[in-house]
């Protein structure tokens, strides 16, 4: 499972395919205060990214991978 859902944190790891988008959305709707752990995120499918951008949940850890962090982190900083 690329996304494992804990009590308050969803951990995204590796490649998150489009199939994950709907479950992630559902989880975030259910847990409005839920946080995302993106530490080991490899590549989110555009649909998954879109969910993150739209709902902007709190991120507990940004990706370790610098390349990803470089474009992902600003998305949380600016007024999307």
């Amino acid at each position: 499972m690329p996304i494992s859902y804990k009590k308050t944190v969803a951990v995204l790891e590796g490649h998150c395919e489009i199939e994950e988008a709907e479950t992630l959305l559902a989880w975030l709707l259910e847990h409005p205060k839920g946080r995302l752990n993106l530490k080991r995120l490899g590549h989110p499918h555009t649909a998954v990214l879109q969910i993150m951008m739209a709902l902007r949940p709190e991120v507990s850890a940004f990706p370790e991978n610098e390349e990803i962090a470089a474009w992902l982190q600003p998305l949380w900083n600016e007024g999307m």
Binding site: I18, A21, E22, L24, L25, L28, L29, T46, A47, Q50, I51, A54, L55
Partner: peptide
């Protein structure tokens, strides 16, 4: 968020 369609690229 409730109305969002995850399969539409925006």
């Amino acid at each position: 968020p409730v109305e969002m369609d995850p399969y539409q690229c925006n």
